[in-house]
């Protein structure tokens, strides 16, 4: 793919993201025009002292929809980034935070902290859970006889099942009535009821973990032929692996603590981008983030609109779209499993 097509693709994805951000806010029970979205944003940034938008509609846009759409974008970008990094680091085309058990570990950590009464520390619990699950998955993969994609997935599934069982037990043990239903919906992956503080947390985590990951793009390319090849290209393999795995665990933890275990985004999006642009991470990582953001905005919009006023957990939609693609990738790579 030459430079010009690449720039065109990049600009198209950026345009798609901006259009998605504005249009998704207009979707919902109250009919909102794109111009009202701009006016409200302008008003809250102090550019418009007097907004012609009514206070109710202002609140719907600013308090309900904008934080949610922004969170969806950040979650999609983060999941796509985590997936792409894990695929490169483990040289496993099937790697994704959900399939390798990180999301379930993060859920367990978040639920444990929540039920211990430390709701504010849920992101920390999720990060610890994601890190522990990742370590266990890598360990089990080694015990199964070394890294191949299938072994890693099997390890991920077993750790995931274990974490999910522990989570279910914790909820069974201590949650009641309404909170039960709420936790269950969040577990399936849902951005319902997201507020500004959560949106800002996700955006901050994305910036904090995303920047070093994006800057490691070229070093990730060096992993295409394995650890030895990366080392002969001057990459400090152990340090980079810790940095990137730590970054993905942190990001996954925060994403899961806000949006629950939303599966397959980290799998689908990098594969689609790779088909378009190839595997150079300098290009792949930012484009996967852009596409992941738009993808998540629209799946989340569908999740809250399809069965309105009821909310469908968005994780169901991503799984519905992602599982067939997972299967396709599996079939395509069957020779290396």
């Amino acid at each position: 793919m030459n430079q010009r097509t690449l720039v065109t693709l990049c600009l198209s994805l950026l345009a798609l993201l901006f259009a998605s951000l504005v249009l998704a806010v207009t979707f919902g029970p109250a009919d909102i025009a794109p111009s009202e979205v701009w006016l409200t944003i302008g008003h809250h940034f102090g550019l418009l002292p007097e907004s012609p938008v009514s206070r109710l509609r202002d609140a719907i846009i600013w308090e309900l929809r904008l934080p949610r759409v922004l969170t969806a974008a950040a979650v999609g970008a983060g999941l796509a980034l985590c997936g792409a990094v894990m695929q490169a680091l483990t040289r496993n085309p099937l790697a994704d935070p959900y399939l390798l058990g990180l999301s379930s570990g993060a859920s367990l950590g978040a639920v444990a902290f929540l039920l211990m009464g430390a709701a504010l520390l849920m992101p920390l619990g999720a990060f610890l859970g994601a890190g522990a699950a990742m370590a266990l998955t890598l360990l089990v993969t080694q015990l199964l006889g070394g890294a191949t994609p299938t072994r890693a997935i099997l390890a991920g599934i077993s750790i995931s099942a274990l974490a999910a069982a522990a989570t279910s037990f914790l909820i069974f043990w201590s949650a009641t009535g309404d909170s039960y239903r709420e936790i269950l919906s969040w577990l399936m992956g849902s951005l319902s009821g997201v507020v500004w503080s959560e949106a800002l947390l996700v955006l901050a985590a994305l910036a904090l973990a995303g920047l070093p990951i994006l800057l490691s793009g070229r070093a990730l390319d060096a992993f295409a032929f394995g650890d030895t090849a990366a080392a002969t290209l001057g990459v400090d393999v152990a340090r980079l692996r810790w940095l990137l795995l730590g970054g993905t665990a942190l990001l996954t933890g925060v994403l899961v603590s806000i949006g629950g275990a939303i599966g397959f985004v980290g799998l689908i999006v990098p594969h689609v981008v790779r088909l378009l642009t190839g595997s150079r991470h300098r290009v792949l990582l930012p484009l996967a983030m852009l596409l992941g953001a738009s993808f998540m905005i629209w799946t989340d919009t569908a999740a809250r609109s399809l069965f309105a006023p009821r909310e469908l957990p968005v994780g169901i939609i991503t799984a519905l779209l992602g599982a067939p693609i997972f299967l396709a990738v599996l079939l395509r790579y069957r020779r290396i499993t």
Binding site: R91, A219, D221, A222, A224, F225, L233, G234, S279, I336
Partner: peptide
């Protein structure tokens, strides 16, 4: 490798250092 890299891109890896 399973990476989708062209031959030129693979050789360019040698310039990473």
């Amino acid at each position: 490798t399973d990476a989708r890299l062209t031959t030129r891109e693979v050789v360019l890896l040698g310039r990473i250092p």
